[in-house]
């Protein structure tokens, strides 16, 4: 027995090539990719530098505004917005969540993360929705873009962290880019599905009355696909939030950085504060954006929340001032 076992490795080593064809050669995938990335970095870095300019502009405007606004004003604004869009209960939740975050001493980090998420989502909307529309209009484009979207969603974020750093450097702009790559696929998919789902007869009706393709899009397809597109925006926001910790590995500030640093120093307290704040904010953003898609009551926005209150107040005042 022992004899056979000790002889086994030798047996392996002497296996003929046809039983182990892999010993023949190795595909130098590593070298190729290195080569490609190096080539791009050497020759086209300016393109990526160019891309980062508008991204940095959007990001820094949003961020500096959020940090500049005093927390109390911000709280009021968030409360009113949540009330208007999603109703009273979610407004109260939002206020409690944001107040807690403030007392956790994580307000500034939260504002940084919020602006990063918003920037990434704005980018997703600007780029993802048109791509989704294009995919809905052309079967060929859809079948081209589908495997790319699959790859973007399944490729572990760590894999493209390195090339992104090589191309964009470290900091918040590459953080936005990484987040964008991860968060945009569902928006493209859902926009595509939403537009394709619009009843064929309604599209035919629009065409039969002589609409141009653009009129069909704006008069019928986009309004009818809007709930699905907004569900896509909601998905994007959620995915963007889930990238926050990974993005902190390339020196992105904010709540993710708290978690990342906490893990690094085995500081369970710091990591938990960051983590809990992310969850509180995620739930808030989720509920608010979901409500945009399907308003709970069938009332128009004028008859809901603070706008309604304001309107009824001013209307009551008018007769009072006239007497």
């Amino acid at each position: 027995m022992i004899d056979i076992l000790t002889h086994f490795p030798n047996l392996w080593g002497e296996l003929p090539v046809f039983l182990d064809p892999f010993q023949l050669f190795t595909i130098p995938l590593q070298e190729w990719i290195e080569g490609i990335v190096d080539f791009i970095v050497d020759n086209f870095r300016f393109i990526f530098q160019g891309i980062s300019v508008p991204v940095r502009f959007i990001l820094s405007s949003i961020e500096s505004f959020f940090i500049w606004v005093p927390p109390t004003i911000m709280l009021i604004a968030i409360g009113l917005l949540a009330w208007q869009i999603a109703g009273g209960a979610i407004a109260i939740y939002s206020l409690i969540a944001m107040t807690l975050i403030g007392y956790f001493n994580a307000w500034e980090e939260t504002m940084t993360t919020l602006s990063l998420v918003l920037t990434a989502v704005v980018l997703c909307a600007i780029i993802g929705i048109p791509l989704g529309i294009a995919a809905a209009r052309s079967d060929r484009f859809e079948s081209t873009i589908r495997p790319i979207l699959d790859a973007m969603q399944t490729l572990p974020a760590f894999v493209y962290l390195v090339p992104v750093v090589m191309l964009f450097g470290t900091g918040e702009v590459p953080g936005v880019i990484v987040t964008f790559v991860f968060a945009v696929p569902p928006l493209i998919r859902l926009t595509n599905i939403g537009i394709r789902q619009v009843s064929q007869e309604v599209v035919e009706a629009a065409l039969a009355f002589g609409s141009t393709p653009n009129q069909v899009l704006w008069e019928a397809q986009i309004p009818l696909a809007m709930p699905t597109i907004l569900a896509g925006v909601n998905q994007s926001i959620m995915l963007a939030l889930s990238m926050v910790v990974i993005a902190s590995m390339i020196a992105v500030e904010g709540l993710g950085q708290m978690v990342f640093r906490g893990i690094g120093r085995l500081d369970i307290g710091l990591a938990s504060v960051g983590g809990i704040s992310i969850v509180l904010m995620a739930v808030m953003l989720d509920r608010i954006t979901q409500a945009v898609g399907k308003p709970t009551q069938n009332l128009s926005w004028k008859d809901r929340g603070p706008v309604r209150l304001f309107r009824s107040l001013t209307q009551n005042q008018k007769p009072a001032s006239s007497t």
Binding site: S199, E201, V202, A205, A208, T212, E219
Partner: peptide, 18 residues
């Protein structure tokens, strides 16, 4: 498109309303 706008209109089985 011009002909569809001015010369012919269509009514659909499942109404095709917006």
């Amino acid at each position: 498109r011009d002909i569809r706008r001015t010369k012919m209109a269509m009514v659909f089985q499942k109404f095709g309303l917006f």
